[in-house]
């Protein structure tokens, strides 16, 4: 009779029932919120917690490689805090280590071109170069991404050409131009060169980003009566914030780190930029390692801190800038 009853649920075979203790369904209420701690002896636990040998090896190699990669910077950092005598013995010898700020003090007021002044000069050049490139780059990128206009392909080609060109190629022309207009050996001259040089990649980078902004947003704004300028200011700029941050970080790093342009266009020692001062610190006979290291640490601090803070934008921007 039971067999015929259509309302008797199909039960699992008696065998299965026995194995699971007759409890077929687990009520929802019985689900614990966290994994039940398994009733295992400590030996089993250790085995379970130990990753496979292969993974351990992988971690070992990975960490070794990463550490190897920063060893030179560790050395530089250590050297910047130690007297020359100890550095020559090898910065890796830690016994009897003297920590001193003497190197930083000397670098800061280095006689030919004090580092303090040089860092200030670098900042004066870098900030406008970054801000102006962002603004002009975003403005130029907008029509590149959204409108058709004559000469577009030509301009596009020129941008690519400049991106491939070495900075040495524009040095001669810019040298003569800046002399002509009286901006040679001035902040302004160097800033202009940096802006002109940076615009190429910034326009291309922002254009690629803007291509991804849906047209509907602009059309909606247009129907709401916004002019092209208003659309740019209220729709395009706010939406490209992530890309603009990437541009800012990368362009800042490049301008700050640039060595060749300052070398060519900045000739007065009081206008020297920080990267320019560093090779001068080598000294004549005995290399002044401590001084040089301290100067290097001061110079690289800004881009490195910026990278660590905005790592995400930096990496994303780097990948996007070259992958496009």
């Amino acid at each position: 009779m039971t067999e015929d009853n259509p309302f008797t649920p199909t039960e699992p075979s008696a065998e299965t029932r026995a194995e699971t203790g007759g409890q077929r369904y687990t009520p929802v209420d019985e689900i614990p919120d966290v994994a039940p701690s398994k009733e295992l002896d400590w030996r089993t636990r250790i085995v379970a917690a130990t990753p496979t040998a292969w993974r351990v090896l992988k971690y070992g190699v990975a960490i070794a490689v990463a550490v190897l990669w920063i060893v030179p910077f560790v050395g530089l950092f250590m050297a910047s805090f130690r007297p020359l005598g100890e550095i020559i013995q090898g910065w890796w010898h830690l016994e009897g280590m003297t920590v001193t700020l003497e190197n930083y003090r000397r670098a800061w007021s280095y006689q030919t071109a004090p580092m303090g002044r040089a860092l200030f000069n670098t900042l004066i050049v870098t900030v406008p170069s970054v801000l102006v490139v962002m603004l002009l780059g975003a403005m130029a990128a907008y029509p590149f991404a959204k409108f058709e206009f004559p000469l577009k392909t030509t301009l596009f080609f020129l941008i690519l050409l400049v991106m491939a060109a070495p900075p040495e190629l524009v040095a001669m022309g810019n040298y003569n131009t800046l002399r002509e207009i009286g901006l040679f050996d001035t902040y302004m001259g160097l800033i202009l060169v940096h802006i002109g040089w940076g615009l190429g990649w910034v326009v291309l980078f922002l254009r690629n980003y803007l291509l991804g902004i849906p047209k509907e947003l602009e059309e909606a704004a247009r129907i709401d009566g916004a002019s092209r300028y208003q659309i740019f200011r209220t729709i395009i700029l706010p939406l490209s914030t992530p890309a603009l941050v990437s541009v800012a970080v990368i362009q800042f790093t490049w301008v700050w780190n640039a060595f060749f342009f300052p070398l060519v266009f900045m000739r007065s020692p009081e206008l020297y930029l920080a990267p320019q001062v560093l090779p001068l610190m080598r000294g004549r006979i005995q290399v002044e390692w401590g001084l040089m290291a301290a100067g290097s640490v001061l110079t690289m601090a800004a881009p490195v801190i910026l990278f660590l803070l905005l790592e995400r934008y930096y990496k994303r921007g780097m990948v996007a800038a070259v992958a496009d």
């Binding site: 309302f7 649920p9 199909t10 699992p12 009520p27 929802v28």
Partner: peptide, 18 residues
């Protein structure tokens, strides 16, 4: 929510939800 509520052929599932 991570557990089995019922195992049954379709007709039964409809005719006799557990």
């Amino acid at each position: 929510r991570g557990t089995i509520q019922q195992i049954a052929p379709p007709e039964e599932l409809y005719a006799r939800p557990r």
